[in-house]
Write a protein that binds this DNA or RNA. Structure first.
Length: 548
RNA sequence: GCGCCCAUAGCUCAAUUGGAUAGAGUGCCGGCCUACGAAGCCGUAGAUUCCCUGUUCGAACCAGGGUGGGCGCACCA
């Protein structure tokens, strides 16, 4: 919250207390400002009057009038606020003075790329786990979306002053690894001209052939060619490929966590024994169950099967217990839609351990449907028919790829039009924003790299100019909102708006003019726009080019 | 059958989490390059917010009931 907003809220609270000494504390404490959709309603608005109406048994407009009157007195000495008005149902609207706007612009210019960053004092230790694809095949577009969202959220949270660890959980043991080993072995035998039977539920993708060929190519094979050997060989090779794909997508992880190591450490048993001690486990029909219904789950869940083997849930319980024990104050998981039903039971486990309920956030990155020629592309992972993240990166590039994956709310379905993403035309929103950035660079160099004015900014008095600066002023709030809601698309939409304002302004006014005072001030203005565009694009992992 | 999610302009989505006249993009139609990048700008048209009922100063948003769609309901991972 900016200093201006703080002063306004203080003034409102003081005024309300002055008019209604017996005003309930909750209403006072929850006073907040919103930014009106329409300019004529001012720059900040409060709805206290309406909320007080019932409590005080008075018409909202009357309350607004008296509170606004007091607030005017309270803010009389504050030259940031030029006017206070009341409006229809009972809104109290505050108008920023030109002085405040100009000061805000010079602040942005002074802070440069630091503008919008939050103070480090309230930073939390955050872990964000995402992608975590099984090492049984290449990353798909679904993983691409998780990668884009996860990495951008990490960047945004860091920008807001948190200490963020990016983690990838490698599911390198269990049934799917056996199948992987058997699949590769079968392809290998085929390649050697020997008879083989491909497993019924095996991985059918062409990459399995490639791996088999690679084994064949490496003459110096050591050890017996068992399923285990093939599984190990293949998963290592696939992990290398996954890491390369992520790197090319601009995503870097701090921790690669192996489930195999977790299993070997005995932590799973330990975690279960803690649950048992808490009375959350019981035996039934030869299996061990976790009493997840106690925390709102539909039914209890098996953690140890009749045959003594852990279910998938067991290591995950231990894994999450460890996350919190490592001191993370906030744990964020990004999962695919197929894990949707799994959220409840994992939350239950975390609660059973006594971890704070809201410390764990699980985001479901919904399905991505790729479109080509306006038609959806059908995909089947099992049949090995799918478009990989690699193909998307190669086809549309990293910038468009990341951008498109974040265009919608994370938990809503996403249509990804491949042709549009790679189109270098005006309907492509990525280029629209990048173009604004490049265009500004071009103007600045056209001006002979004129130094931006730090004084004399008051000549920026056109409504469009004032509007742009006010939009720039919102940037810190937008980033914080994006972090708070864990939604990169909020930032993305904001950048689109800002780019639109710039393009429109560019068309109506010349930046470089004969009047050097005006030129300098306008250069300052577009430089500030450039700063924010570049900052925002960086948070999204999209480049901000000087030229295109 | 039980549980979760969704329904807003022709299409894809917003709407500051209960706020003011429901907004963008795209598509359609029309206009703007002999001054800073036309990858751009401006304009017209397009909505019973799926349907009832309720809650209150105020509902696209909350509650109840319908209708239509998606997903989950494993001692698989």
């Amino acid at each position: 919250m900016s200093k201006i907003e703080k002063n306004i809220i203080d003034a409102i609270q003081k005024s309300v207390r002055g008019v209604f000494p017996d005003c309930p504390e909750e209403i006072l404490a929850s006073v907040y400002l919103e930014i009106p959709k329409e300019k004529r309603f001012g720059d900040f608005s409060t709805n206290v009057a309406m909320r007080l109406a019932r409590e005080m048994k008075k018409p909202p407009m009357d309350i607004a009038a008296s509170v606004a009157g007091k607030a005017k007195e309270a803010l009389a000495s504050d030259d940031a606020v030029s006017d206070i008005k009341i409006e229809k149902p009972g809104f109290i609207n505050f108008y920023l003075s030109n002085k405040a706007v100009i000061e805000a612009l010079s602040k942005i210019l002074r802070e440069g790329s630091r503008f919008g960053r939050s103070s480090l004092e309230k930073g939390k230790k955050v872990q964000i786990e995402f992608v975590s694809a099984n090492p049984t095949g290449p990353l798909t577009v679904a993983h691409g979306r998780q990668a884009a969202v996860g990495d951008s959220l990490a960047r945004i949270l860091e920008f807001c002053g948190h200490r963020v660890t990016r983690e990838y959980y490698i599911n390198d043991e269990g049934v799917q690894m056996d199948i992987l080993g058997r699949s590769v072995r079968a392809r290998y035998l085929e390649a050697m001209g020997e008879k083989s039977e491909f497993p019924e539920n095996g991985y059918k993708g062409s990459y399995i052939h490639d791996i088999a060929q690679a084994v064949k190519g490496e003459a110096k094979q050591k050890g017996p060619l068992t399923d285990e050997f093939f599984a190990e060989y293949a998963s290592k090779r696939i992990m290398r490929m996954i890491k390369q794909d992520l790197k090319d997508f601009g995503v870097a992880f701090d921790v690669w966590y192996s489930q195999k190591k977790l299993s070997g450490s005995g932590k799973i048993k330990k975690a279960l024994s803690v649950l048992k001690a808490g009375g959350f486990l019981y035996e039934k029909a030869g299996a061990t169950w976790f009493r997840s219904t106690e925390f709102g789950d539909d039914k209890d869940r098996v953690v140890i099967k009749k045959d003594g083997v852990f279910t998938y849930l067991a290591p995950d319980i231990a894994y999450h217990k460890e996350k919190f024990e490592k001191g993370y104050e906030r744990v964020i998981n990004i999962w695919g839609p197929d894990h949707h039903g799994y959220v409840c039971r994992l939350r239950a486990a975390c609660q059973a351990f006594g971890f704070a309920k809201d410390a764990l956030s699980i985001l479901i990155a919904q399905l991505v449907t790729l479109y080509r020629d306006k038609k959806p592309i059908k995909m089947s992972t099992r049949e090995g028919e799918f478009i990989t993240l690699r193909q998307v990166i190669d086809e549309v590039g990293r910038d468009a790829g990341r951008f498109f994956f974040m265009m919608r709310r994370t938990d809503s379905h996403l249509d990804f039009d491949l042709e549009l993403a790679k189109a270098r035309t005006m309907d492509n929103p990525v280029y629209y924003i990048q173009y604004a950035h490049a265009r500004i660079s071009s103007i600045i160099s056209f001006s002979g790299n004129a130094a931006p004015a730090l004084k004399g900014l008051h000549v920026l008095d056109k409504p469009e100019e004032v509007n742009i600066i006010k939009t720039l002023m919102q940037y810190p709030k937008i980033v914080q909102g994006s972090a708070h809601n864990l939604e990169p698309y909020l930032l993305l939409a904001y950048l689109q708006d800002l780019a639109r304002l710039f393009h429109s302004y560019y068309d109506s006014y010349r930046v470089v003019t004969d009047d050097s005072a005006v030129t300098k001030a306008r250069i300052a203005l577009i430089k500030a726009i450039k700063t924010v565009l570049s900052s925002g694009l960086t948070l999204l992992g999209v480049s901000a080019p000087e030229k295109m």
